[in-house]
Simulated scan of single mutants.
Amino acid sequence: MWEFISERWDLIAYNALQHANLVLQAVVVATVIAVGIAVIVDRYRFLDPIANTVSAIGLTIPSFALVGLLLPLTMIGALTAFICVAFYATLPILRNAVVGFAQVDKTLIESAKGMGMSDLGVLLRVRIPLAWPVIHAGVRTSVQMSMGIAAIAAYVLGPGLGGYIFTGLTQAGGTNAVNYAVVGTVGIVIVALVADLLMLLLGRLTISKGIRA
């Protein structure tokens, strides 16, 4: 195993960075989309059950099925992998963002408007900061979930460590089959742990001590 890793260390490290990069980009895009939708849902509360239903149904769609649906449109490659990861990443963030905005005290919003803040100013300086702890929890969950989805997205030649797992499966019984599978699996776990630590640090830096759980 150690010989296998030492011979391929540079490539393994590169793929680990690619895996993290795919998840990072997908989660950033997912966060923007989810927060934008949540703002609309908070404005029109009748959309709340619809958003929750979409989130629940979306999470039940098998990732392989989604990949199969995307292939005729986006073909094999990084774009299909990115869309797949971003789709699943959006769902837990959306659910938390809707809850987070709903919990913001309406009197604070009215006070901010009374001070002359515009709707955009209230959103950026009041609503998002107060809802951020709940949104951040959704983003953190999304990051961890996306690590596994990104591995499955390697089926369409997406970047990352998932390729090692599929190589191990296709070479089952071969000399290095187990090595490929173990390196891919353990590598994803390590990347996920590092990402979770970074998310904890992000929470410490961006969540006010007064509202930190």
Results as ranks from 00 to 15, higher is better:
Glu3Ser: 12
Ser6Cys: 15
Glu7Val: 11
Glu7Ser: 14
Trp9Ala: 13
Ala13Trp: 15
Tyr14Leu: 15
Ala16Thr: 02
Ala16Trp: 02
Leu17His: 04
Val32Trp: 10
Ala34Glu: 09
Ile37Cys: 11
Asp42Asn: 15
Arg43Val: 15
Arg43Ile: 15
Tyr44Phe: 08
Tyr44Ile: 15
Leu47Lys: 05
Asn52Cys: 09
Ala56Ile: 08
Leu59His: 11
Pro62Val: 14
Ser63Thr: 05
Leu66Met: 08
Leu66Gln: 01
Val67Asn: 05
Leu73Ser: 15
Met75Arg: 13
Gly77Pro: 03
Leu79Glu: 09
Thr80Ala: 10
Phe101Asp: 05
Ala102Asn: 09
Gln103Lys: 02
Lys106Trp: 09
Lys106Phe: 11
Thr107His: 14
Leu108Val: 11
Ile109Cys: 14
Ser111Tyr: 12
Ser111Glu: 09
Lys113His: 11
Gly114Asn: 13
Gly116Asn: 11
Met117Gln: 10
Ser118Lys: 05
Ser118Ile: 03
Leu120Pro: 14
Gly121Ile: 03
Leu124Ile: 13
Val126Gln: 04
Ala131Thr: 05
Pro133Ser: 12
Val134Lys: 03
Ile135Pro: 00
Ala137Met: 06
Val139Thr: 07
Thr141Pro: 06
Met145Asn: 08
Gly148Val: 10
Ala150Gln: 07
Ala151Pro: 03
Ile152Lys: 06
Ala154Cys: 06
Val156His: 01
Gly160Glu: 00
Gly162Tyr: 03
Gly163Gln: 06
Phe166Lys: 07
Gly168Pro: 03
Thr170Phe: 02
Gly173Val: 06
Asn179Asp: 02
Asn179Phe: 00
Val183Asn: 01
Gly184Val: 03
Ala195Glu: 02
Leu198Phe: 04
Met199Phe: 07
Leu200Arg: 11
Gly203Val: 15
Leu205Gly: 12
Thr206Cys: 11
